[in-house]
Design a protein around this nucleic acid. Structure first.
Lengths: 109, 109
DNA sequence: CCGAATCCTTGGCGATACTG
DNA sequence: CAGTATCGCCAAGGATTCGG
């Protein structure tokens, strides 16, 4: 446990969670990681439990944090594609560990 | 969370986040990881932003998930110690990555 | 097809007080 | 010192609509 001196570790975790807060952001990032470039509707379909409002909101926040890239095609009908930025890709190891942990401990039905 | 038409990786992330939901749980786990066995008051002090009610609640949930161990000493005044269980320790790699990420991207004061 | 704005409900969470 | 219970607020988030 290097560089984890008294509370520094905890504070860094606090910071990370303040940037990627709540579970929706992790899930959205996982979807983009798995499927690459995705349109709004594709993400929505992958995470059907999320509401329209929540998804737009979370995407906007992730974009503001420079974790995802938003590319808008000015056309009718509109088309917007999202993808991970380089910074967003640095979160992949965490997402993978989360996925591994979930796979291991998820009750098999 | 129900009927997510998602691929396996995404589902596993969803499961993980359903077990360790919200930021408080990660922070509590980080504190126990850093400092080892901790009394209630010590945790409270490390995460001063958390309220009394929240802390008890989160601790109870973490205990129910078998991620932390609660040891009560029946004495006056009461003394209760918390520590990571073996299952809880399996989350350490994730916490460490979160700490590393936070350290790297946290704006320098 | 995508996103913003509005309205409205709900429960998360804080504050406080009380018990063992 | 540790935990539980109660009350009440406010904001998170759901449903819907409109506009580009």
């Amino acid at each position: 446990m290097p560089n984890c001196t008294m509370n520094e570790c905890g504070k860094s975790v606090v910071y990370t969670l303040s940037v990627v807060g709540g579970k929706w952001k992790w899930i959205i990032l996982a979807i983009l990681f798995e499927n690459g470039v995705q349109r709004y509707g594709e993400i929505k379909k992958s995470a059907s439990a999320i509401t329209h409002k929540m998804l737009s909101q979370q995407l906007k926040e992730l974009e503001a944090e420079q974790l995802i890239l938003r590319e808008e095609y000015h056309q009718i009908p509109p088309k917007v594609e999202y993808s991970l930025t380089e910074k967003g890709k640095t979160l992949i190891p965490i997402i993978q560990l989360m996925a591994d942990w979930g796979t291991k401990y998820k009750p098999s039905k």
